[in-house]
């Protein structure tokens, strides 16, 4: 039954939905294009050159030489080690502490609302202030940590905390954990609250202990929350720069020499922008791969 009605001439007429979508998405995409995509592209372009601002007139094109050089650079591998340790400690520490806090705040008791509101204080603290705060606490001459431990009799004399290469990474990680734990805790707490009560009741009837209920009900239900926490925390911890800049500047020696710091050194101290850009892309690639792995790993188990 063909009908003789007017048809729009073009078969590829843009539908109303698609047209609207383009208008709605355009502003964000354009801004990001200018201040994110273009710089990223330009940065990648830089990484293919032996670009050294100390000699700005000679900029040979070197393909992926910078990247190759990196893998032979012992300093790079030190940075990789430091970054890995730092990220692992930070992410796992944040997750564990967040879990504890979430379990704690999940209980019903008076004053819980106030404590939950105060939970956001570390999250709201600017990272620079976070850095200077802990630096002040760790201070070798006047710091609170020294004073406290001395008074408690745990140490005999004041330590130079940040100056101890074995401790540096962990101390900085501690500052990062302090600031990032609240967000993770909130995520886990909200997920916890959505676990139906009936599961716990059934388990109690079946005779499960508190620990068993936690292991078999709470933890599995928190998987999506943990996944989000792990991915997000990894993405930001791997790139941390502010704390290192304020607290230790990569030192002592190379105790806190992370990839981010190496990028800074190469780009702004050695002025080798090509190398710095290459490093950045290695870091970005690592971030993407890790995020992808996490998502696959945890969603398969679900």
């Amino acid at each position: 039954m063909t009908s003789s009605i007017a048809r729009p001439a073009s078969r590829f007429r843009l539908s109303y939905d698609s047209g609207s979508a383009i208008f709605l998405v355009a502003p964000a995409v354009l801004v990001l294009g200018l201040v994110a995509v273009y710089p990223i592209g330009y940065s990648f372009y830089n990484s293919l050159f032996d670009l050294n601002l100390a000699r700005p007139h000679r900029v040979p094109f070197v393909w992926f030489d910078n990247y190759a050089k990196l893998f032979h650079d012992p300093q790079f591998w030190i940075a990789v080690r430091r970054t890995t340790v730092y990220t692992l400690v930070t992410v796992i520490g944040t997750a564990l502490l967040a879990l504890g806090v979430a379990l704690f705040l999940n209980e019903a008791f008076r004053g819980r609302r106030i404590l939950a509101a105060l939970l956001l204080v570390p999250w709201a603290t600017p990272s620079i202030v976070n850095g200077l705060m802990w630096k002040w606490i760790y201070d070798p001459t006047y710091g609170l940590l020294n004073g406290l431990l001395l008074t408690l009799g745990i140490i005999e004399k004041y330590q130079v905390w940040l100056g101890d290469p074995n401790l540096t990474i962990f101390l900085i990680a501690q500052a990062a954990i302090w600031k990032q734990m609240p967000l993770a805790a909130i995520l886990l707490l909200v997920t916890m609250k959505s676990i139906p009560d009936d599961l716990y009741r059934a388990a109690k009837v079946d005779g499960a202990t508190v620990l068993q209920r936690f292991w078999h009900i709470t933890l599995p239900a928190l998987k999506p929350g943990f996944m989000l926490v792990f991915v997000y925390e990894t993405m930001i911890s791997i790139r941390h720069f502010d704390l290192f800049a304020i607290m230790t500047q990569g030192g002592p020696g190379d105790a806190s020499f992370t990839i981010s710091w190496q990028i800074y050194i190469e780009s702004f101290r050695s002025l080798k922008f090509g190398m710095g850009s290459a490093l950045s892309f290695v870091l970005a690639l690592a971030t993407l791969i890790l995020s992808y792995l996490f998502i696959r790993l945890l969603s398969r188990k679900l």
């Binding site: 990223i40 990028i263 490093l279 950045s280 690639l285």
Partner: peptide
């Protein structure tokens, strides 16, 4: 776009 560290 957020995978790239800011310094770069």
């Amino acid at each position: 776009t957020r995978a790239i560290p800011d310094i770069a």
